[in-house]
Write a protein that binds this DNA or RNA. Sequence first.
DNA 1: TTGCTCCTCACGTCACGTGAGGTGGC
DNA 2: TTGCTCCTCACGTCACGTGAGGTGGC
Lengths: 270, 270
Amino acid sequence: VSALVSIGEFSRLAHLSVKALRHYHDVGVFSPVEVDIHNGYRLYGVEQLDDAHVLRRLRELDMPLEEVKLVLDSGGGCRRDRAIASHLQRMELELERTRDIVASLRDLLDAPTRPLDVTHRTLKPGEAVAHRATVANTNIEQWSIEAFADLSAVVASAGFVRAGPTGSQFSNEYFEQGIGDVAAFVALEGRVGPEAMGAEVLRLSGGAHATTIHCGTYEDLDLTYGALGSHVAEKQIGAPGPITEFYVAGPDEVETEADLRTEVCWPIIA
Amino acid sequence: VSALVSIGEFSRLAHLSVKALRHYHDVGVFSPVEVDIHNGYRLYGVEQLDDAHVLRRLRELDMPLEEVKLVLDSGGGCRRDRAIASHLQRMELELERTRDIVASLRDLLDAPTRPLDVTHRTLKPGEAVAHRATVANTNIEQWSIEAFADLSAVVASAGFVRAGPTGSQFSNEYFEQGIGDVAAFVALEGRVGPEAMGAEVLRLSGGAHATTIHCGTYEDLDLTYGALGSHVAEKQIGAPGPITEFYVAGPDEVETEADLRTEVCWPIIA
DNA sequence: TTGCTCCTCACGTCACGTGAGGTGGC
DNA sequence: TTGCTCCTCACGTCACGTGAGGTGGC
């Protein structure tokens, strides 16, 4: 049928290294059509080049080999197209994030420190409808958007009255490990009734907090955390408890990222 | 002076994991201001947060720790700004490349195979002025641009007469390992005189080749290599010797990447 | 016979993450 | 005393790269 070539020849045709080809064979992502029984020589068919070219591009885009395997195994059908399309979409998001980080880094170098207005205030205790999950910081935005969309629907359909902007509570684990328990909530006037189907009830314990307003993209929240936490550490007024964010002006309400306003609340001793 | 905090506290302030902070300490990229002699506890100063924020952003941009170390060690001066600027520039190139690969992948899926016009022709032997080096495919473009710029200057100042477009010869190693010997050359009429200061003399051995014209970005050259190599493999006419590319229409001569024309020559038996 | 290509281990790299097992202060 | 935080090994992960040591065909 079609020509068989050695691994060295195939590596020149596909622009993939011999070591890489052997590795792909070992882990079952991309195998030669034939292996010589006498000497173990791998023999590739030239018709495998189409797959090899796709494989090379996916790896250049840093797609994990496990996913590459799925794509190559899924045949030429729409499953394959969907797998690639979803990865390409992730790449676009990655590109945006990279641009944001670059911009943020430029800012950091231009204006190394900006002072921060820290206020001490006491959060009101109360009840809230909430969604709670273990979330990684890589997809906290996506998760929050969905959580708040659902909570809004619940609040509207149950006829609850909001008591302030939407907010989130974070476990320490979330910041220390980059993944941990997060609760997205909407504080309510009075108590949460049984109409809150689907959503959990979150009891907000309130108490003394050092707070500040973060302006702009969430990518820069670490700066505000640093400044706020420094303030608390220097005055030695830290107290246990979760950190709370209030989305005073969230993604829904602003036109540009620069207009975002987020209140960060750090628990302190009374 | 300023407040000292534990590693856990610092990780929450800087949004870096405890494991990462310990790793940065181990490899000497970012160390606590103090280590408790009794129990080995790491103590960080809140004034270290500025560096930590820069560190976090550089890592998010995948800067290797060795380079991060250089940036952080270089103080606040212009050395540091230059180190970051050069990395940001590399990021921009990366972004462009990613976009190109995505586009190329889309093409690959839309138009899976396009037939190729393969011609057999005999390259003329002769002499050329050349630059030769061990180059990796990650910076072949940059290297080639510089090499050809210099060769052009040599040809002009020595009054040589060109015999055809610029070209490159690649060792097998270059394709198999992604890094290897490459020679960028300009073929000349007659022999190379002693005026070729700086540039080497390359003897082109000529001979029978299967050739084809590759249209468009160099990112897609692997497709042409695959098709050309398949042709040679199927007819079993392969011969030893380096692959030669001629830049019939190179980056200098075209307005858009789509207009690039590259002749790829694969050695075959006469 | 010499070179070249191919083979299989086994180990290294990079930037951490994952437990195991243990200590120290409130 | 219980929990919580911190510590140090030692090993795992991912996608290969790097030799070492050996075989097979022209």
